[in-house]
Amino acid sequence: MIQFNNVSFGYSKQKLLYTNINLELTAGSVYGLLGKNGAGKSTLLKLMAGLVYPLHGKLSVFNANPTKRAPSFMHEVFFIPEEIDTPSLHVLDFGAEHMPFYPKFNNEQFLDYLKEFDIPMTNLNNMSFGQKKKVWIALGMASNASLIILDEPTNGLDIPSKRKLRKLIASVLNEDTCIIISTHQVKDLDSLIDKIILVDEGEIIVNTDTDSITEKLVFKLSPDISSTEQYLYYESSLAGNLIVKERTPEDETTKLDLELFFNAGINNKNGIKQLFN
């Protein structure tokens, strides 16, 4: 669905952020894009949406070139930025003004989602940041675009809304959709993510599905660290040691601990890269 072929990008030609990256994203999955602050997560998302243009290489999204910004491409892409800005309009007018641009827009879904999110039927000006954000999310999901990009969607959402967002994402995903979520708060959405892209310092460290991670790695809390075993990464605390190690056939599969996996990927880049590439 999305293909990066030797794509390079930088806000200036002298200082490249990404050099010759190759990446493929397929439909039917929820991608979690992880990386530290300033690692270039948002930039990667903007590349896919055609908001910034690659300096070199070929990038295709649904076999189209995003930089052409053709309407037929754009009505398949919905980008919800971290910060949002809404006009002073009644929420229903807001929906009505966007609806005709998206051929697959479903107004009933939009109203349903607004109800799910407890959005008051009033002017957007009277709403809090979190409510405005939920209106945008509802709009994006109701557009039925094939590629939905959410940059830090849980920022500004209260606890019940995060739960409803998870339900919403689970309900809209189908074989033709690709949902990409960039997030710092991995715990908010980790049971929904089934593919992981980990970026650091302008390189793609991992692009894999969570099944292969749990297939290849074991995450566990162990009271002691034995020097004979090989760990990819561990964190020590009074409660014990959180360890990441390569899984042997004897080991049971464990639940993926995204936070631990993230730290392992950042701190032991080569170890993780060797396993997954």
């Binding site: 949406a49 908001l51 309407p71 754009m74 910060e83 966007h98 641009f101």
Partner: peptide, 11 residues
């Protein structure tokens, strides 16, 4: 965000 909306509006 407004710029993103403007640029990505399918037209």
């Amino acid at each position: 965000p407004k710029t993103i909306q403007f640029l990505l509006l399918p037209a």
